[in-house]
């Protein structure tokens, strides 16, 4: 499994770096705003916009992982070794989770160190921070799962239009529902369904 994960990371290094890049930019903005005393609403607005970039990066990662497999017939090659397609898919998803954690955890730490720069300073800040972090992570993972689903398509046009449209819908769910339990429940449901569907497609497609 570790070999599969390593191979996946090596193959998609650029797309793994994309969400992390947005995360780093957000941290830099928070740090610079705090250092120069930029009003909190400005850094908050920038962070909110860059969050869309984070979602986009994760969706791209999922799409590219599946599309590269289909186009390069990677899983066909790997299936000749002692590896099942389920394991290949699991390794792929684990890479997605890893990328998400690498992107989100530094953001959470920054929000703890610099309160009010990434999340508005409110009462019961830690509770709000936890809820926002969990919801953002779930939304990011939902975007990644949707990317996995869309990336298995052979048509590039559908892949592009589908990923943009579905990404916009999933990302807007956070804006609509907020960071409460109901938003988390909807996102969890979406993630479970998308992962099952993507996995089922991947495993059952003939080589």
């Amino acid at each position: 499994m570790l070999t599969l994960i390593r191979r996946e990371i090596r193959d998609q290094l650029l797309y793994i770096a994309l969400p992390c890049f947005f995360s780093v930019v957000m941290i830099c903005i928070a740090a610079v705003s705090s250092w120069w005393g930029v009003p909190a609403p400005i850094s908050l607005a920038l962070t909110a916009n860059l969050m869309t970039g984070l979602f986009l990066g994760l969706c791209c990662l999922g799409t590219v992982q599946m599309h590269a497999d289909r186009a390069g017939r990677i899983s066909v090659l790997l299936s000749t070794l002692a590896v099942t397609r389920g394991q290949i898919f699991l390794a792929r998803v684990l890479v997605g989770v890893l990328t998400l954690l690498i992107a989100v955890i530094p953001l959470v730490i920054t929000a703890l160190v610099l309160p009010g720069q990434i999340i508005p300073r409110v009462s019961s800040y830690h509770h709000v921070l936890a809820a926002v972090s969990v919801t953002i992570s779930l939304a990011g993972f939902a975007c990644y799962s949707i990317g996995l689903l869309v990336g298995w398509r052979t048509s590039r046009a559908w892949m592009l239009i589908g990923s943009i449209l579905l990404l916009a819908l999933v990302a807007s769910l956070v804006w609509i529902k907020g960071f409460g339990v109901d938003a988390m429940a909807v996102l969890l449901l979406l993630i479970a369904a998308a992962l099952f569907r993507a996995g089922s497609q991947f495993v059952s497609t003939s080589l």
């Binding site: 508005p120 409110v122 009462s123 804006w175 609509i176 529902k177 907020g178 960071f179 409460g180």
Partner: peptide
């Protein structure tokens, strides 16, 4: 200001609920 703004607003000053923007 949909759910996200409403959520942050309700936590900005819980006893005042929706009057958060003015309070902030």
């Amino acid at each position: 200001g949909l759910g996200a703004a409403q959520y942050l607003g309700s936590h900005a000053f819980p006893l005042a609920s929706d009057a958060w923007l003015w309070l902030v």
